[in-house]
Amino acid sequence: MKIEVVVDVKPVLGEGPVWDVEQQRLYFIDSLGRRVFRCTADGTEVRAWTVPSAIGSMALTRDGEGALVALVDGIHTLDFGSGELMAVIDPEPGMDGNRLNDGKVDRAGRFVFGSMNMAETESSGRLYSLDSSWRLRVLDDGIICSNGPCWSPDDRRLYFADSWAGEIWEYDYDVHLGEATHRRRFAALASNGLGAHDGSTVDAEGYLWNAFVYEGKVARFAPDGTLDRVIDTPVKKVTSVMFGGPDLDVLYVTSMAEPPLPRFPGDPAARGSLFAITGLGVHGIPEPRFGGLIADAHTARFEERGPAEHVATSGAHS
């Protein structure tokens, strides 16, 4: 196993790596530095786009020419050619203490993303699903900091974490209906009191990989939730993970250069770097793109459709 720096652009809060198998490019974001990055598997050909507010996550669109970006004031489209942004949906109008955070696309093309309390003290966040018809639904609520949505290879389980709950959850997931029910504990990694579960991905064997932020560890959990492996990284503030590269056998790990919460200490010179872990003997699963058409989004604004539908909040907890 080898860990090395691939890109060092010093994001304030590096997050959300997404490997696109069609373009053979890796995307990642600087949540608080308000940038979207793209690079090759070896960290060359770096390109960046600037967005007007903090960005929690992104999802590539079907044509590969742009992305959905989760900003403070809702979901926008980003055109990679022009850099133009257009607002589509604001799930939480008037909730000034919240912003949108981590998200990924399920294999039916839905963008599943969460919100978080910016002070990370109140349970004001929600977990949302935006489908290809631009219907927005609430999957769960009462969340402090949404992180790590990903799915089992058979699409029957959704994994998700409220970072400050001290555990990763799993839900029964109906990929055809986009419903998440029966939330229960999946796994937890013992902490010294500082660490928290951040971004996750699932490999081809059905094992979940999680970045344990503020502890400097990446953990692999078996499908039954037992701890399979722990890797120590060069920095404490690792934030998310994603398999990529031509053979989907490189684990990319993002990190932050500056902690948004002052109670956490700084890191050495490699802080904020995008790392690559090779030699793991494990392969990832191709990430899907969002299934909706951008042209349709601009004629079907959220304000015209009414509030988000609650589909599983009351029945999600078991």
Rank of each mutant, 00 (worst) to 15 (best):
W134L: 15
H298N: 08
S115T: 13
A59Q: 08
D20Y: 11
V36K: 03
N98I: 02
P17M: 08
E179S: 05
D30M: 08
P91K: 00
R62H: 09
G16A: 14
R34N: 09
Q23E: 14
F28H: 06
D8C: 05
F186D: 07
N117L: 01
V238D: 06
D247T: 09
G56N: 06
P234L: 15
R301F: 14
A308W: 14
I3A: 11
H317W: 15
R271T: 07
W164V: 13
N147C: 08
N210G: 04
E84G: 04
S152Q: 00
L189D: 00
V235P: 06
K236E: 13
S123T: 13
L261Q: 02
D90F: 07
D73H: 08
G315I: 10
G66W: 14
G109K: 10
G114H: 02
L293K: 14
R184Y: 11
D162P: 02
E22A: 13
L274E: 02
E122Y: 10
R126G: 03
G114Q: 10
D20Q: 07
G33N: 06
V12T: 15
R263H: 01
D174V: 04
K236F: 14
I3C: 14
V253D: 00
A108F: 03
V112D: 04
D73Y: 06
R135M: 10
E45K: 05
E309Y: 06
A41K: 01
N210W: 00
F111A: 01
V72Y: 10
R99D: 02
L139C: 06
S314A: 14
G272V: 15
T313R: 15
G33V: 13
R126Y: 04
L71Y: 03
L71S: 02
P268R: 00
C39N: 03
N192H: 08
C145I: 03
G206P: 05
V105C: 07
E45A: 09
W209V: 15
A87Q: 08
S57A: 14
V36D: 04
M116A: 12
E65K: 10
G279H: 10
H317R: 11
